[in-house]
């Protein structure tokens, strides 16, 4: 009995090591998502292109779509942009949320790099960003046809992340909505 008790510290040590080892794989900069499974927050904001007028959460309903948070000051958005163009060409609806940006430079950016967005919401003060819990651009939300957020990705969406995290869910939601 006492002999066995001597192994307790070793067992505890191994257990703790395993726990910490698993923790190494986790990315500490990735926050748990508070809004997955919730309705996209309501908002009333003007479009980046003023001619498109005012936009609200109702404009997001009806079709499975990606909502991409972007800004011209965001370096990683530059890297992500070709992927968004590509997704748009594949027929994925992409909606832009231009976050705390300047209108003129944002428009120039889209002229220069191509505009994958069905429309861009112009959130100059970051109020919608705050309601979404945005803490860094780029961020990408997958919303279903009823306007519920189904997945969130903080950081660049590239080929690998699209395949691993979005593709299947997107196809499934697309099927459900038909």
């Amino acid at each position: 009995m006492i002999r066995l008790a001597l192994f307790v510290p070793l067992a505890l040590f191994i257990g703790l090591s395993a726990l910490l080892l698993l923790g190494l794989d986790k990315d500490p900069t990735e926050l748990p998502s508070a809004l997955v499974g919730e309705k996209f927050p309501s908002f009333t904001l003007i479009a980046l292109d003023e001619e498109q007028g005012m936009l609200s959460e109702k404009d997001l309903i009806g079709e499975v779509a990606l909502v991409n948070v972007w800004a011209t000051w965001c370096y990683a958005c530059r890297i992500e942009h070709p992927m968004l163009n590509q997704l748009n060409e594949q027929g994925v609806k992409v909606i832009g949320l231009n976050y705390k940006d300047e209108r003129e430079s944002a428009k120039k950016w889209l002229d220069l790099r191509g505009d994958p967005y069905a429309f861009s919401i112009f959130d100059v003060r970051g109020s919608l960003g705050l309601d979404l819990g945005v803490y860094g651009a780029p961020e990408t939300y997958l919303i279903d046809a009823t306007g519920v957020i189904r997945h969130r990705r903080v950081g660049v969406v590239d080929e690998r992340i699209w395949t691993n995290e979005f593709q299947d869910l997107y196809a499934q939601l697309k099927e459900e909505s038909q």
Partner: peptide, 8 residues
């Protein structure tokens, strides 16, 4: 704030 940014 928790509703937006989680308990983090």
């Amino acid at each position: 704030l928790t509703n937006r940014y989680s308990a983090f």
